[in-house]
């Protein structure tokens, strides 16, 4: 009887394990099947590098370069804001902050991670967007910059918590060694501790950016959603994610537009996958 129980439990666990892989494969196959269909009517490079996205004009123009650039621009902006602040915050928490402040900060960061993205988007819409409009004296505050700032907030918790772990796991002997040679606390941090934690910090950055590039709701609400090639960060852009979210409901199932949106999904999947693999490589390097 006991053996039978063991057997059942073992198989159940096996099933749960396989189920997750099974669903990933199914999703991937479905994405490929629906997405690749668009290339029957549009050339591969026309799709990736086409400068115009007019999916419902006649004939439809299905070039996603503006969307790719929109996503990259918003992500780049978010990276420029969140990486220095996030890594700086991690260094402060791991190395400088007194115990009490450390605990308060860590709780605060976790709270930031717990805010739903739609709420962040909403707050951005009523506070950040008018501020950007006013600051730069531009016709609309719905710009790539607004999206970047908002997304920087969303990337920060990931970057801070993973980078802080990486810094914390640097052997204390390195710090002692540096101080014993007469280094100041700051010299020990930037010459020894941060370099020693750099694989983990890189992984933290990659995972933070992975979150940014896949984020949909907040960017849709505050980047303006104009599918044109952006010339500056103070213009409205449309990201890959926002395009799918905004248009999928209206696209006729089986139409060219519908297939094109799936193809956008594939592009997004490839980018996210590449970022995750990159992060994994860095983390792996650290373990060696």
């Amino acid at each position: 009887m006991r053996k039978f129980k063991e057997f059942i439990i073992e198989k159940l666990i096996l099933f749960s394990g396989l189920a997750s892989i099974f669903f990933v494969v199914l999703i991937f196959l479905f994405l490929l099947k629906e997405g690749l269909a668009v290339f029957k009517t549009v050339g591969f490079f026309d799709f990736l590098l086409g400068k115009k996205w007019y999916p419902i004009s006649e004939p439809a123009r299905l070039g996603i370069l503006p969307l790719i650039l929109g996503s990259l621009l918003v992500t780049l902006g978010a990276a420029l804001i969140s990486i220095p602040i996030g890594v700086g915050c991690a260094v402060y928490i791991a190395e400088v902050a007194p115990l009490k402040i450390k605990e308060i900060l860590k709780a605060g960061i976790e709270l930031l991670a717990a805010i739903p993205s739609v709420v962040l988007g909403f707050i951005g819409m009523v506070t950040l967007v008018p501020w950007v409009k006013h600051m730069f004296k531009i016709p609309t505050g719905l710009t790539a910059l607004s999206g970047s700032i908002m997304l920087a907030f969303m990337a920060m918790p990931t970057i801070v918590s993973i980078a802080e772990d990486a810094l914390y796991s640097v052997p204390k002997a390195y710090k002692e060694g540096a101080l014993a040679l007469g280094a100041t606390h700051w010299q020990a941090i930037y010459r020894v501790i941060v370099p020693a934690a750099s694989p983990g910090i890189m992984a933290a950055v990659m995972l933070g950016l992975g979150r940014v590039i896949g984020e949909t709701m907040a960017v849709m609400m505050i980047t303006g959603n104009a599918a044109v090639i952006p010339r500056s960060i103070l213009e409205p852009v449309r990201t890959l994610t926002a395009t799918i979210a905004a248009e999928m409901g209206e696209a006729v199932v089986g139409s060219e537009h519908y297939f094109a949106l799936f193809a956008v999904g594939i592009v997004l999947f490839v980018i996210s996958f590449a970022i995750n693999v990159g992060a994994d490589l860095f983390l792996h390097k650290e373990n060696k």
Binding site: E176, G177, G182, V192, P195
Partner: peptide, 23 residues
């Protein structure tokens, strides 16, 4: 000070030695 467990920094041999001079 020399520690119980050797604790060279995870840098090159060269960088380990010039560390003191650099700081």
């Amino acid at each position: 000070m020399v520690f119980q467990r050797p604790n060279p920094f995870p840098l090159s041999i060269y960088e380990n030695i010039v560390f003191g001079e650099k700081i």
